[in-house]
Every structure is written in structure tokens, then in C-alpha cells.
């Protein structure tokens, strides 16, 4: 039924964290990345939430894609269906976090519902569809990409804490500007991994 690419699960996991990092190589999930990385603690929480959302959505959407969308031949509706699935998963996660960790819920605040429109989530699902992964690959790719996003936001949050303590940044470059340059350097550093493993 599916013509899955021949990639080992372990190498797929590490590749999605390091060489094809969802954020640094594919530029997905920038908006919340830039605004949240100001604060180390919320970065931690958001990273965790995004990882879970991407992982779960990737699995659910895989099932939806191959058991509902393809048999019915409604591929042209797939964007809408994926978005609805993502919104439902986020809503559920929001209720669960609210129930079990009100402090984390308070910290994430407005950003939790915004994961719905975080391009990283939809991006991973569309990559999964285009590269026709099988179920295990889809799950591993989902969690790997989430973990890659998490790693990137933690690194950036740590760097920004140091940067803010130091007032040497030119006025016009403060805020988003210097953050983008920092991300650029991180992306360059991550290119260094590219000889190790590659899945595209």
C-alpha cells in the first residue's frame, strides 16, 4: 500500500534532530520560536508541548491519511483535515495540562492554542505525506522533529539570556534582528552535522 523509503528508524530519529532540523534547516515554527525564546522556562514547557503535539499528530494524521483520506480519494481536502486533527489534539493536550500541571498551563498561556498554527506541526505532517513514510517512520520522524525543535529553542533561550545581560548590541539590531543572526549561526553549526547522516 505504501512505498516507504528505506531508512533505519534510529538514523531517521537523529537525522530529524540534527541534520534536517525542522527549525534550522526547514525554517518551520519560527514565530513562536522567536517570541518565546526570551524566557528559558517557557521555552522548556513549549518545547515539551510542541514535541508531544508533533509526535501525536504525526501518528494520528498518518492513520487518517492512509485509512480515511486515501481510501475515500479526498486528497484535495487533506490540508483541512490535518488542521482539524491538529486543533483537536492541541485542545485535548490543553485540557490534560490544565488538569495535571496548572503552573505549566499558566506559563504557556496563550501559546498553547497557538501551537495549532505553529507551522512546524503541519510541516512535519506534510513532509511525512510527501516522503510517504510508513507508520513507525512517521512516529519517529514526528518525535524526532519535535525534539529537534525543542533542542533548538533551548539552545537559543540559553544564548539569549547571555545576550540580554550584555548591552553591546546596536540599537537597530536589538530584539528580532540579533535573534535571527544568532539563529543563523546556530544553523551554520548544525550544517556541520550534515556529513553524518542524511535523509531527504
Amino acid at each position: 500500500m505504501i512505498d516507504a523509503p528505506n531508512v533505519g528508524l534510529v538514523s531517521l530519529f537523529f537525522a530529524s534532530i540534527l541534520t534536517s532540523n525542522i527549525l534550522l534547516a526547514n525554517f518551520l515554527g519560527m514565530c513562536s520560536f522567536i517570541s518565546i525564546s526570551k524566557d528559558f522556562k517557557s521555552s522548556m514547557g513549549l518545547g515539551l508541548a510542541v514535541t508531544m503535539v508533533i509526535g501525536i499528530c504525526s501518528a494520528v494524521c498518518w492513520a487518517v491519511l492512509y485509512f480515511i483520506i486515501k481510501p475515500l480519494g479526498i486528497e484535495y481536502l487533506s490540508f483541512i483535515i490535518f488542521i482539524i486533527v491538529i486543533a483537536a489534539v492541541v485542545q485535548m493536550l490543553e485540557m490534560i495540562i490544565d488538569r495535571f500541571s496548572p503552573s505549566l498551563y499558566m506559563a504557556l498561556g496563550i501559546f498553547l492554542p497557538l501551537i495549532t498554527v505553529n507551522c512546524a506541526v503541519l510541516g512535519v505532517i506534510l513532509f511525512m505525506q510527501i516522503r510517504s513514510y510508513n507508520f513507525l517512520q512517521a512516529v519517529v520522524f514526528g518525535f524526532g522533529s519535535g525534539a529537534g525543535w525543542w533542542l533548538a529553542i533551548m539552545l537559543l533561550a540559553a544564548i539569549r539570556t547571555k545576550l540580554d545581560a550584555n548591552n553591546a548590541v546596536p540599537a537597530g539590531l536589538k530584539g528580532t534582528g540579533i535573534t535571527l543572526i544568532t539563529i543563523g549561526f546556530m544553523a551554520m553549526a548544525f550544517i556541520g552535522f550534515s556529513g553524518m547522516i542524511a535523509v531527504q
Partner: peptide, 22 residues
């Protein structure tokens, strides 16, 4: 053509725009 240059260029453009606005 690789990822980092995109970040640098957008940052430079933002810098120029901010300086001009200031």
C-alpha cells in the same frame, strides 16, 4: 542558497529598517 544566509539577510534588512525608522 543554504539556510544560514536567510537568517543573516533578514536580520540585516530588519536592522536597516529599524535604523531608518529611528
Amino acid at each position: 542558497v543554504m539556510a544560514p544566509s536567510a537568517f543573516f539577510l533578514v536580520a540585516l534588512a530588519l536592522w536597516a529598517a529599524n535604523t531608518y525608522k529611528a
